[in-house]
Design a protein around this nucleic acid. Structure first.
Lengths: 358, 358
DNA sequence: TTGTACGCGTTATCAT
DNA sequence: ATGATAACGCGTACAA
């Protein structure tokens, strides 16, 4: 080991003499400098019970130095690291194409940096097994936030099975012990489908999200619920998509051939694709086909016509995930936390139309 | 302190009896289990000199447990944490709008996870002073990679002034002691401007990037160099942009009024904006105005007409930054590292045109 | 090759 | 309120 000799233990006798500024790196150095014990210095730094007089003494000594507590030592002694992990294990080319993950990350970073908590990040570079291993291997994390969009996910299973406090985002698991933060996809999809019904559409198609994802399945479920309640038929009105624009175009072409007057796509990207298909067929939105999406990404309002969609506060979702983790850390015995954030129906010209086209 | 009593020291006498599986958490536990000293177990784990026989013995004992080394203890004892910091201190709404940062992050993550190095991330949520403080406060980092696009940046100054091994990305500093990774903006801008000259354009305008950024200034410098070498005039042919699409539209309208037959925008987003301006004026690309951008973002090839631009391997830039940091950590005395990655001129119909329009 | 023993810098307990 | 002092878990000279 190449330890730079720490002054303060014994060599401190040569300190403060005249050989330039003495590097103050440890509590012991600081203790020697201010004439109190190491324990007292620690109390001053961590806000323990100290008399006002000595507190000032130590503070003054502290000012003159660039002392920083050693995080490793602190973690070792206290059992808390002040660092949480964030896991976004996705297809590399999928990550960040959708602003969803960027905003999620920023929301988390907001809340974490607010509390001066560090954030370690794992993306999908390696296999789920290797990633899980690495996360647990660096056992210094206080907790983990993981995006979990697939209904089945070994990485998420592993995290929940470990002793690491874990918060899931974007996913409600069957596991009753799991804490999570999400929006109510079923309810939101029901709402926007009902909107299409309300404006008089009867043959309303649906292009699903990727099957097997919670968002895909739940939005489909919401669509079905609304249609059933309205007494409308759905057979031959549903085609599978995968959340990508291209699948929206393909799915829309198919549905248009079967005759629809309304279309709910499971996300905005596919709605964008559907828009092209509708244009190719020479039909008008919303006159011939009323169109709705989901997410309210930036571009949704820029489309021609602007897209009716569901807005979810993704950034807030991230913030809420971090706050939920804080709760979990504060009271580990308090049982799992579940947070469902509200969504908002944003009505634009792709359904209520009539307004001028640019 | 709420320490869970570690078995192994003395309580280990009650271990392995019949009271369920004994939790093996420390090297001491493992040592007791395999009948060797703790030091030997440590050597097995870290690949030290151990006889093949005992190595197998320990390995076998290891298999049965879910032992994980304690990162904090390891860091404290060795002085290395296996964690590096990544700093992307930007305007929140700017971050990740441009895929530049996503790809950079992924490139870094590639190289870091490859070496099982952890990655801590700081975004621009708080002030540069607070961010710097927090980074140094958690003194457990082995090194830092920081994006530095402004020519002046107190955060970068602070990192370089600290004792943390630091690699800058996207920025060459005057500071001769700084290690960095970047592309040669001047050369690339010169190349693409020269391309416009080569195809016969004479009144070539330029919309700059945000002034004060290295990319903005250097791309301008490259444009000027190419124009001067070609003996062309540039007065009244340069307007300031800010890398955003809107400034491209505004700048282009201005330049079109002054009469240009070529236009080099400092990035693709502004070229996209310029395209709209040209269309508004009823002009054709490239017949009336040849248009060029910089970055080769995904959408550049999708524009109508597809955009001639400069491709930089952003993801590779991130990877290279991580590798450079590794070098720095391996040989701290080796002096600063500088890496310049090559760029590529991508010629499309916005300059060579003539091909069919969709 | 293996074991002994010390040190890493801090927190927290227990006296005073 | 303050000061000793024992952990925390691991790496590594040094000795054997």
């Amino acid at each position: 080991m190449s330890r730079t000799p720490s002054n303060g233990t014994k060599a401190s006798s040569s300190n403060g003499t005249g050989t330039g500024t003495a590097p103050v790196r440890t509590l012991d150095d600081l203790a020697a400098l201010s004439g109190v014990s190491r324990a007292t210095v620690s109390r001053v730094i961590n806000g323990g019970p100290v008399s006002e007089a000595t507190r000032r003494r130590v503070q003054t000594a502290l000012e003159g130095t660039n002392y920083r507590p050693n995080a490793a030592a602190r973690t070792l002694a206290s059992g808390r690291s002040g660092v949480v992990g964030v896991v976004m294990h996705l297809d590399p080319h999928m990550l960040f194409r959708d602003p969803y993950f960027s905003q999620l990350l920023q929301g988390m970073s907001d809340a974490l940096s607010e509390q001066a908590i560090g954030m370690m990040l794992w993306l999908g570079n390696r296999s789920k097994e290797e990633t899980l291993d690495h996360i647990l291997w660096m056992g210094l994390l206080d907790g983990v936030i993981a995006t979990a969009h697939e209904q089945e996910d070994r990485l998420v299973d592993g995290l929940l099975a470990s002793s690491l406090p874990t918060v899931l985002v974007g996913h409600r698991r069957a596991d009753p012990a799991a804490s999570y933060v999400d929006v109510d996809h079923v309810h939101a999809a029901d709402t926007i489908t009902t909107h299409l019904v309300t404006i008089g559409r009867r043959r309303i198609g649906h292009i699903t999200g990727r099957r097997g994802t919670v968002a895909g399945e739940d939005r489909l479920a919401g669509y079905l619920r609304a249609m059933r309640r309205a007494g409308l038929r759905t057979d031959a009105l549903i085609v599978d998509g995968d959340f990508n624009k291209a699948s929206g175009t393909a799915g829309a072409l198919e549905l248009l051939d079967r005759g629809i007057d309304g279309l709910f796509c499971a996300n905005d990207a596919m709605a964008d694709g559907a828009l092209e298909a509708i244009r190719v067929r020479g039909l008008r939105v919303p006159d011939d086909v009323a169109l709705a999406g989901f997410d309210d990404l930036d571009f949704a309002a820029q489309l021609d016509p602007p897209l009716t969609t569901i807005r979810q506060g993704v950034r807030q979702l991230g913030t809420e995930a971090a706050l939920t983790l804080f709760q979990l850390l504060k009271d580990p015995a308090g049982g799992p936390r579940r947070v469902i954030l509200p969504t908002e129906l944003v009505i634009r010209q792709s359904t209520v139309g009539g307004v001028q086209r640019a």
